[in-house]
């Protein structure tokens, strides 16, 4: 062969050595033929590619931090706002950066406090309803005996018009943030639970679950170790989309007067602004823009994340 001389020169082996048997190495034969691929690393890499989502996420983080800073740099403390008739509807300017409202109170302090309240409310309510929804959804989907019970419960709650249900709670129990948060969670879990249940159906009868049952694994461990990891991407997506949903819902409730007005939230500011915004548009524009920023952020982040989670995009 013409190449033989070439090989000899390269390896320093004689022709005879070249055609001798080589030693067999078990390690080389058993070396895994599969690429090191990490699902979450790929998710992250794809997510970072969506510039708009990353930028909006940055804007949101800055916004949230600023809600704390704003109170410190502002001239008025939100807890000590006085009603001064002469200062009613002062336009934004040097003294009052965001102007004053219909009662002459500093709007800057109120807006940032309301933003903080709304974000905290939205995040905790969303987290609460997702948590409840995931736990119930997993039981509903995995434990056959509970299927009937949860299906009936779902139908029962789902058929009550939510506004009537919220009105009754607000009027009979109270309008405090805690009660309203619980009320929103109380029906907010439904959609998540149904979604999770349908997903669990996909995984329930896979052989690896059967294997766990043959090993005597307890229900709770099967749910957390065998089922939950497969749902994480869906859960994060739902959480991302639930946050703007909750803010919008809280706004609606405040607009209908079903929220406690002693602590301002974005919804309450919008509700107050509705009577005056034709003459004093800044009262509406400022809180509305903040609601928009939050909503758009989570919408973009949620969609970018759901795209990033799709393994078909991991190329």
């Amino acid at each position: 062969m013409m190449a033989a001389a070439n090989i000899k020169a390269r390896t320093g082996m004689s022709e005879k050595q070249l055609f001798d048997f080589a030693a067999f190495r078990f390690q080389d034969a058993e070396r895994t033929g599969y690429s090191e691929y990490s699902y979450w690393k790929s998710v992250w890499r794809n997510f970072v590619k969506k510039k708009s989502a990353v930028i909006m996420l940055g804007v949101f983080v800055v916004l949230f931090i600023f809600t704390f800073v704003a109170a410190a740099i502002g001239k008025y403390d939100v807890n000590n706002l006085r009603i001064v008739d002469s200062l009613m509807f002062t336009r934004p300017g040097g003294e009052f950066w965001f102007g004053t409202d219909n009662l002459g109170r500093d709007y800057w302090a109120q807006v940032w406090h309301a933003t903080r309240t709304s974000i905290i409310l939205a995040v905790s309510v969303s987290a609460g309803q997702i948590l409840l929804g995931v736990i119930i959804g997993m039981m509903w989907g995995y434990v056959r005996k509970l299927d009937r019970l949860f299906t009936e419960l779902y139908n029962l709650i789902d058929n009550i018009p939510t506004i009537i249900y919220m009105t009754l709670i607000a009027l009979m129990i109270g309008k405090s943030y805690f009660i309203m948060a619980c009320a929103i969670i109380g029906f907010g879990w439904l959609a998540t639970a149904r979604n999770v249940r349908n997903l669990v159906f996909m995984y329930r009868d896979r052989e690896y679950n059967l294997a766990s049952r043959c090993l005597g694994t307890k229900l709770w461990r099967i749910l957390t170790k065998n089922i939950l990891p497969y749902l994480i991407s869906v859960i994060i997506l739902r959480l991302a989309l639930a946050i703007p949903g909750t803010i919008a819902y809280e706004t609606t409730l405040a607009y209908l007067g079903l929220m406690d007005i002693s602590t301002p939230s974005l919804g309450i500011l919008l509700r107050n602004a509705r009577s005056f915004f034709l003459d004093y548009p800044y009262l509406l524009v400022i809180p509305a823009s903040i609601v928009s920023v939050i909503t758009v952020t989570f919408y973009l982040v949620g969609n970018a994340f759901s795209d990033a989670c799709d393994p078909r995009n991991h190329v």
Partner: peptide
Amino acid sequence: PRNRKALNIDFI
């Protein structure tokens, strides 16, 4: 790599 009777040249 999986052949127990491989020759040296097989690897080159």
